[in-house]
């Protein structure tokens, strides 16, 4: 096991690019190697040691045996863990664009907020963000119709717009709120949102699941109510509680499933008659 610790000495207004500093490349590096390394900054390269004190402890035979720790405010450090296949990265602070993008294995944990494109086109592994993230989390590259295809993203804070765009596999779990158009164009996989959703979840989705435990601002016409379901099971996972189920987006003959918490969204049911059995059932359920 090898631990490589980056202690920040100096921040930069121009972003540093860490695409070469991923476990797959640096597992065999010594402190001397780092001292000789110049990190890309804009159109130039500067010694990495200008920005970080780097300590290396232990030995590693493969990327999987590496733990990379970044201490400091990395909100101008792009591509952390981008394309990595194994090992572990911990960021004690914020992180910039493309954290864990295109990664195929390993674990990235960020104890701060993260800029856009986190986990873009992820294929495997796990990305955990303790703070908030901006737009296009777990999305695809622009123009690409195959987005994140595997692995897991967990966001403890809020997620920005178009989270999980073009999702074709894997799971995104947002513990906070989610901005508009979560799961747009998705074809497979699951997005679970514990908080509220601003508008239009699942726009033009073809398939896959979206689970929302909070309140939904506005739904698209393309989602057709299927009624109330209790403890539904989606792709082998049971979501306890009562939900309103929708299918959509029928604007493109989509067959996706959207379930939203029935209780928090009961105003959606208010057009139903008060005596409706199912509605009463919810009230009873709530009273318990």
């Amino acid at each position: 096991m090898k631990t490589i610790t980056f202690d920040q000495k100096k921040t930069s207004s121009i972003a540093l690019e860490f695409d070469e500093l991923i476990t797959d490349n640096i597992y065999s590096w010594t402190e001397e190697d780092f001292a000789a390394y110049k990190v890309p900054v804009g159109n130039s390269r500067f010694p990495i040691t200008d920005y970080f004190d780097i300590t290396v402890e232990g030995e590693a035979e493969s990327p999987a045996e590496v733990k990379m720790i970044l201490n400091g405010d990395c909100n101008r450090v792009k591509y952390i863990g981008c394309k990595m296949s194994a090992g572990e990265v911990v960021v004690n602070g914020d992180a910039d664009l493309h954290v864990g993008a295109e990664m195929s294995g390993g674990v990235v944990t960020v104890f701060g907020n993260v800029a856009a494109h986190a986990g873009r086109e992820m294929k495997g592994g796990k990305l955990e963000i303790m703070g908030n993230t901006k737009e296009f989390c777990g999305a695809s590259y622009i123009g690409e119709w195959r987005g994140m295809s595997g692995g897991e993203i967990i966001i403890h804070g809020n997620a920005g717009k178009q989270c999980g765009e073009c999702l074709v596999g894997g799971k995104i779990h947002v513990l906070g709120d989610c901005d508009i158009l979560a799961g747009i164009h998705m074809t497979k996989g699951t997005i679970e949102i514990d908080g509220n959703v601003n508008r239009w979840p699942g726009g033009q989705m073809k398939n896959g699941n979206i689970v929302i435990h909070g309140k939904v601002g506005r739904l698209l016409e393309g989602f057709v109510e299927q009624g109330i379901v209790t403890d539904p099971e989606l792709d082998g996972i049971v979501y306890p509680g009562r939900y309103i189920e929708y299918k959509g987006d029928i604007a493109l003959n989509g067959k996706g499933t959207l379930i939203i918490d029935a209780e928090k969204n009961r105003d959606r049911l208010s057009t139903w008659i008060e005596e409706d059995d199912e509605y009463n059932a919810i009230r009873e359920y709530r009273a318990q």
Binding site: W200, Q204, L220, E221, G222, E225, A251, L252, N253
Partner: peptide, 19 residues
Amino acid sequence: DYGFYNALRAVLKGKKLQS
């Protein structure tokens, strides 16, 4: 805009509007 176009697409697919 988005909601409006989505509804228009649904209608073109022969679907009935719910609202």
